Amino acid sequence: MTTGKNTKGYETPNHPYQGERIAEESDLISRYGLQNKEEFWRAQSELRNMRREARRLLGEAQGDVEAAQEAGSEFVARLRKLGILSSNDDISAVLSLDVTDLLERRLQTVVYREGLASSTQQARQFIVHGHVTVGDARVTRPSKKVETSEEDIIAFDETSPLADELHPERAEAQE
Rank of each mutant, 00 (worst) to 15 (best):
A68V: 06
R124K: 15
T100N: 11
T159W: 07
E114A: 11
N49A: 15
P161E: 12
L103R: 06
R55S: 11
A61G: 07
Q62C: 11
F126I: 04
L95I: 07
Q69G: 09
V76I: 09
V65F: 00
I127S: 03
E158L: 10
E165K: 13
P161S: 09
H129C: 08
S92G: 10
L103V: 10
A155D: 08
Q108W: 05
E74P: 03
V65L: 02
L82Y: 10
T140G: 06
E104A: 14
E172Q: 14
M50V: 11
A71Q: 07
L162D: 04
N36W: 14
Q121I: 12
A117Y: 04
D164G: 12
L85S: 07
V65R: 03
N49M: 10
D64V: 11
S86V: 09
L85H: 09
A68Y: 01
R170T: 06
L58G: 03
Q44N: 12
A155T: 08
V99L: 06
F75G: 00
K81W: 06
Y112K: 09
A54T: 03
A123T: 14
E74K: 01
S149T: 10
D90G: 00
H167P: 02
A137E: 14
E70A: 05
N88T: 12
A67I: 02
R141I: 13
V146H: 00
E147G: 09
L97E: 06
D64K: 05
S45R: 12
H167R: 07
V65H: 04
T120Q: 14
E150V: 03
E60H: 00
S92M: 06
V65I: 09
S118R: 08
R138Q: 10
K37L: 11
R113W: 04
G72W: 01
A71R: 07
L97H: 08
Q121F: 15
V76F: 03
P168D: 02
E150P: 04
L82W: 08
P168W: 04
H129A: 07
L95R: 09
